[in-house]
Simulated assay, not measured.
Amino acid sequence: MVNLSSIEMESSKTSTLHSVDGRIKIISSLLIIIYAVYTTNLLILLITEIYLLLLILISNISLSYALKRIALILPFGGFIAIFQPFIMEGDVVYTLPFGIDITLQGIDFGMLLMLRLIVCVTAVVLLSSVTPMQELINSARKLGVPREFSMLLSLTLRYIFFFYEELRKIRNAQKTRCFDIWNKKTAYLWRLKKIGETISMMFLRSYEQGEKVYFSMLSRGYSDGSNLYDENKKLSAKDFTFIGITLSLIVGLEITRYFSII
């Protein structure tokens, strides 16, 4: 099952990539995403995806688990790529009933969008799978993310698991009372009412917990000038090696594309 706890457990494993500095992993992921959006060569995108999958295998991450996470995210943008052959003008290769044309340019552009999306999603999944959430926030702060934004993310991270656990308790209590939102035998309006009550209950608990946490922070000296603790960690040879490999891959692919080797 893919949930917050399983994602954090994966990021807490030990491997060569897990031990790389968070700043290097963020920069490397951004470089891959930017290059995937820039390039229009399908073969280059395919090679980049293979590189990311190899990193997943090296990182001691379950490949099936990573592919499941990728598949869960793809539908949110994949439908845009799927519809391109039907909406883009160009050379018609096939005509469907009701006068719907499939164009060659639409197929090419749809494949390009889909491969770009897959590479970008894989890069994000890899980054979140080898870097704990708190380390991501701390690394982003060192890279120049505003203090207020990083503080907000840090507080959100600390209590998102608490609210997730509260929601799980509510859902378990509902199940013990034989409530199932997918049970079509019960009235739709009644199920909708129960869902609304659940959302209201979570909102009230979130508000009450937020008040408690805020007053607790004030009693411990929290103020507008408070800042997150940043560990002064120097980059090692392993960090430079990793980003060097990623840069070499991107530069090498671009050189081969420029000379029309690929």
Rank of each mutant, 00 (worst) to 15 (best):
P97L: 08
P97S: 10
F98R: 13
G99K: 08
I100S: 04
D101K: 14
D101C: 01
D101T: 12
D101I: 00
D101Y: 07
I102M: 03
T103H: 08
T103Q: 02
T103I: 01
T103M: 05
L104Q: 12
L104R: 12
Q105E: 13
Q105L: 10
Q105D: 09
G106M: 08
G106E: 05
F109M: 15
G110R: 01
M111G: 06
L112K: 11
M114F: 05
M114P: 00
M114H: 06
M114D: 05
L115S: 14
R116D: 03
R116K: 14
R116L: 03
R116T: 07
I118Y: 08
V119W: 00
C120Q: 14
V121R: 12
V121G: 02
T122M: 15
T122N: 15
T122G: 12
A123T: 13
A123M: 11
V124C: 12
V124T: 15
L126C: 10
L127H: 04
L127T: 06
S128F: 09
S128A: 15
S128C: 11
S129Y: 00
S129N: 08
V130Q: 04
T131L: 01
T131K: 06
T131Y: 00
P132V: 07
P132E: 00
P132T: 03
M133A: 04
E135L: 04
L136D: 06
L136W: 09
I137Q: 04
S139W: 10
A140K: 08
A140H: 05
K142Y: 05
K142G: 04
L143D: 14
L143G: 13
G144L: 07
V145L: 13
V145C: 00
P146Y: 10
R147C: 07
E148T: 05
S150G: 10
M151S: 05
L153S: 01
S154N: 12
S154L: 06
S154P: 01
L155H: 03
L155P: 05
L155E: 03
T156R: 10
L157C: 09
R158Y: 04
R158H: 01
R158D: 01
R158C: 02
